Amino acid sequence: MDAVMDLFHSLTEHLDAAVTSPWFYLALFAVAVIDGFFPVVPSESMVITGGVYAASTGEPNAAAVMALAALGAFIGDHVSFYVGRGPGQKMVARMKPGTRKHKAFTWAQALMRERGGLILVVARYVPGGRTAVTMTMGTCGYPRRWFAFFAGIAAISWAVYGVVLGYVGGKAFEESPIKGVAVGLGLALSVTAVVEIVRYLRKRKSAPATDENEAEVGAEPEEKPVTTG
């Protein structure tokens, strides 16, 4: 038991030193940028952790965490967007009209033009979804100006959301920041789970109608009997 407690205290000390260091700001910004086009780094976890320590120890500064996380996310989304506009559009140009891939792209293009902004903002809260959406928007030729506008809304709201979750956990466990981090991450996972459940239910609800439409489109026209006069 003593060994476990010693390990816990050691981890806490290392986490305290890392988060309260001035280098945390640079690391947070870099991770937020990379997560925009390579979604395997824990940007949301770092934002929440920053919020926890801002509430419990006063370091790092909560406003600075929000600003750097939002700026990093905004830049990272644009990297993904321009990857879509470059290699993505070249790949689309090689698609043969009428193939399944070409039809899927045409459908995605129409969807992005109609609801791209809303999809981009919502996708920022879906792990991995943000990269798929931003790259697809670039590939579909979504207007740069409108992409920047909605990417800004998504990045700012996401940064505020992460810091607020962390701040709640930090205030609940001011004397044990690591417990506050656990609470903040738990809240974030709960929100993600709710979003995924809603998406699944909506998709399941719309599936029958989609299947019917596809059946109608793919049905062969009935042959009318040929009559002779």
Rank of each mutant, 00 (worst) to 15 (best):
M1W: 05
D2G: 14
D6R: 14
D6C: 08
D6G: 05
D16L: 09
V19G: 01
T20W: 01
T20K: 05
S21Y: 10
Y25Q: 11
L28Q: 07
L28C: 09
V31H: 03
V31S: 01
A32S: 13
G36A: 03
F37A: 01
F38H: 06
F38D: 06
F38C: 07
P39C: 13
P39Q: 15
V40H: 10
V40L: 14
S43E: 09
M46Q: 01
M46I: 02
V47W: 04
G50M: 05
G51H: 06
S56T: 02
E59V: 15
E59M: 15
P60M: 08
N61Y: 11
A63I: 14
V65S: 00
A67N: 04
L68W: 00
A69P: 01
A69N: 03
A70S: 08
A73N: 13
I75H: 00
G76E: 04
D77A: 00
V79F: 06
S80H: 02
P87V: 10
P87Y: 05
K90F: 01
A93Q: 10
R94I: 04
K96Q: 15
T106R: 11
Q109D: 14
Q109K: 15
R113K: 09
E114L: 10
R115N: 14
G117L: 08
L118P: 02
L118N: 09
L120E: 01
V121A: 03
V122I: 15
V122F: 12
V122T: 14
R124F: 14
Y125H: 03
V126A: 01
G129M: 04
V133L: 10
V133A: 11
M135F: 11
M135Q: 13
T136N: 12
C140K: 07
C140R: 03
G141L: 06
A148W: 06
A151G: 00
A151K: 03
A151I: 02
A151R: 00
A154I: 10
A154T: 09
A155V: 02
I156S: 04
V160M: 06
Y161V: 03
G162Y: 08
V163N: 05
V163S: 03
V164D: 03
V164F: 07
L165I: 09
G166D: 04
V168F: 13
G170E: 01
K171S: 12
K171Q: 13
A172R: 02
A172K: 00
F173V: 10
E175R: 08
P177A: 03
V181I: 14
V181S: 06
G184W: 00
L185E: 06
L187S: 01
L187C: 00
L187T: 04
A193C: 00
V194C: 06
V195A: 04
I197D: 02
V198F: 07
Y200T: 11
L201C: 12
R202K: 05
A209W: 10
A209D: 12
E212N: 07
A215C: 05
E216K: 12
V217E: 15
E220A: 12
E222P: 00
E222T: 05
P225A: 13
V226Y: 11
V226S: 12
V226T: 12
